[in-house]
């Protein structure tokens, strides 16, 4: 897989979450995604960015325009050094929330991506990587 372009953005406040929605939208447009696809990518990014701020104590987003030879895509990698997630399987379940939300963030973002990976170690942080292909 080739990485055509990349950028790293800070994710520390709820204003950053709004900025990330706008930035990811621009990247999705540049990669040629249609409006519905853009909206899914941006919404997934918003969910995970909020988790990074509210649960991870802030972190970073790496945005990459990628291609695998035949298809172009966008890969988003959120990383934080927060408390981590003890039970990933439980955290992925719809309706499970520790933050007072609806518990749709992780499961919803997964449904909005083509590839979704999450890794976390309690006490060390969390990394979420989602990719959407055209």
């Amino acid at each position: 897989m080739d990485i055509e372009r990349s950028e790293v953005i800070r994710v520390t406040s709820s204003e950053d979450v709004v900025r990330i929605r706008q930035l990811v939208r621009e990247w999705a447009i540049r990669s040629g995604f249609n409006l519905v696809e853009q909206t899914k990518i941006v919404t997934g990014a918003s969910e995970i960015a909020r988790n990074t701020v509210n649960h991870g104590g802030g972190g970073t987003l790496l945005v990459e325009a990628v291609n695998n030879g035949s298809r172009r895509g966008i890969r988003l990698t959120f990383e934080d050094k927060g408390p981590g997630i003890a039970d990933l399987e439980l955290a992925m379940k719809d309706g499970y929330s520790t933050g007072g939300g609806l518990g749709l963030g992780l499961g919803g973002a997964k449904r909005l991506s083509n590839e979704f990976e999450i890794s976390s170690r309690p006490g060390e942080g969390t990394r979420v990587r989602m990719t959407r292909w055209k």
């Binding site: 519905v36 899914k40 919404t43 969910e47 749709l104 919803g108 449904r111 909005l112």
Partner: peptide, 14 residues
């Protein structure tokens, strides 16, 4: 509500 938003909300589970 924009159509793309409606589609995304349902897929999100909301």
């Amino acid at each position: 509500m924009r159509p793309a938003v409606a589609i995304t909300l349902v897929e999100l589970g909301l």
